[in-house]
Design a protein around this nucleic acid. Sequence first.
RNA 1: GGGCCCAUAGCUCAAUUGGUUAGAGCCCCCGGCUCAUAACCGGGUUGUUCCUGGUUCGAGUCCAGGUGGGCCUACCA
Length: 661
Amino acid sequence: MVRPFYVTTPIYYVNDRPHIGHAYSTVAADVVSRYARLRGRPAYFLTGLDEHGLKIERRAKEEGLAPQDFVDRMAAPFRSAWEELGCAHDGFIRTTSPQHRENVQALWKLMQDSGDIYLDDYEDWYCVGCESFKTEKELLEGNLCPIHQKPVERIKERSYFFRLSNYTQPLLDFYEAHPDFVQPEARFNEVKSFVKEGLRDLSISRTSFRWGVPVPGDPEHVVYVWLDALMNYVSALGGPAEQGKAPLYDEFWQSSGTITHIVGKDILRFHAIYWPAFLMSAGIRLPTQIWAHGWLTVNGEKMSKSLGNFLPPGPLVEAFGADVLRYYFMREVGFGHDGDFNHRNLLNRYNGELANGLGNLMNRIVASIVKKSLDGRVPNVDLDSLEEIDRQLIDKASAASQQAGKHIEALAFHRALDTIWELVSAANKYVDSTEPWKLAKQDDKTRLEQVCYTVLETLRWLSVMLFPVMPEKCNELREQLGMAPLLPTEQVDLWPSAWGGLRAGTRTKTATPLFPRFDESQERSILERLGVEVAPADKKKAPAMTETEQRKDEFIEFDDFTKVDLRVAVVKEAEKVEKSKKLLRLIVDAGETEPRQILAGISEHYAPEDLIGRRVVIVANLKPRKLMGLESQGMVLAASDESGLSILGVDKDVEPGSPAK
RNA sequence: GGGCCCAUAGCUCAAUUGGUUAGAGCCCCCGGCUCAUAACCGGGUUGUUCCUGGUUCGAGUCCAGGUGGGCCUACCA
């Protein structure tokens, strides 16, 4: 029950400034770690920064700074962002720290001792933005990286390799034995099917830049940034380098505690495949779970610098407060799904749930009825003499507490909050049904006290259950209840389970409403200040695609057909493409000044020599495309059925280049 | 090409894993209340559970096929 709990966010690349995507991951990690602490578990929450790599080295140079000075400068906004958001991390790892570098080298040696590292030549395209090699087929037209749309570079170097191929089966066995290793399940399936295809050895060193951790014993090489980065989860705790004198490492990694890595879905492969393989090789225990969450769009659009909707958390925190933003993150989108950050929606949830729901419940009881009729004090009631309707609310609270706890443990934050709001709603209903204001007028003091106590105690429960998500607001709520701030203590489970924790006679306090409602003009000015364009009359939801539009005609226009430039061409040369099963490389004369190179996937059906001299029909204006590193400047038409494939030709020797129509 | 996931009210999502009449929230309309932040409470409207078939006493749930969407992966010209 008191197993240690270790949760991490990804380490963010310092080249960026913090945005709500980073904030979302970090808040989630903060929420689970706060929850674990409330349950009395020792918890450690790690976040940090990835500060190495070619991109940083270059950026620093551009700015005329030493790399270390550059990253120092870029690190500051992250630290302050997490502070503003109330993310109380225990550790903040930076990959340039000596402790981290030592541990990366220690990991390297452990992997080397296992015989999993060897030296070989490597040549391929490299994208500086991704910090990774790209295969030909991934590249866009003109050798552009598909992610960054920037040119990749041809890099040939001697490189150390990790025998990832040896871990295909061990990984599959591990997945089999740990069916919850990756969440959500659909993502786990993707990981498994990727591994089942068989893994190739991984290049894990670079000589093309210096800004990284030197390979032990071969300082010409720098450790591959992903190996470097993944190691942070262990190095932050002291790691294998500090063997025997790293109490955090012993407590949170080497114990039987839970280790949860929260990651974005884009970096799942590194965490679910490479990282466990590295650890297996080094003989270090594996994490318990990798949780891949989705992406946030902003008002329905993908967040990007070029679109100008790159959203830093700072101004939002300023406008709404950290807890409101945290609440919105956790409430709005199912963890694991993609979601949308929508300002309008945030305001609706704020007014509808926080202000009208929870805030008003608190206000109507504490600042009004209890204050006016009970002298602002928690009444003394006999819990055994409560009425049925009181017990129903208590039962509801009990159920909510249990359910919400389970949901948070499963990182289903939206469900947890859903459950908790059912209780808020039930409590408001309870107040309406019991009508304490009438009891006050009727001088039915005993009943009035019972009703007020029941609501006050419900509020106390809520102040605990919502604490992981809204720590500040919950402590304010507690202050108004006359209670001390929550102080999680190891070995003590504070999660609500016993009714009656609120002491009779406690003096409640009235203060400003917890969540003052925004009226329309306030909403407008907030949105204006944030620079959000608001559609006047509820701009119709993204028009998506209407079903009717999708049903296109079965026919195409003649004009459509004439767009296709079909021509007769004569095959001049033909050869098999090396290492390819299906492709033939053809040089054809299409009546143009230069011959064309066309790749055709017909190698299984035609021998190259049988094609030379034949007339074929080609699509001449097809956009060129690279296949196996060779550009194909057109397409050879062929018909196929179960028995095979047959190239289309002409039955007279028409001139090369003749149009076909 | 191979694979995975999904499809439920106008929107966002539930449905105890095959069990009664498919439910919430938001939105909209009507009513009540007046302690409260114009808050709260009640009532009302909206469904071919994507389609077709199958298994079953019983299917939103399981099976087959199809359609549409998302994702992973691949030498699709």
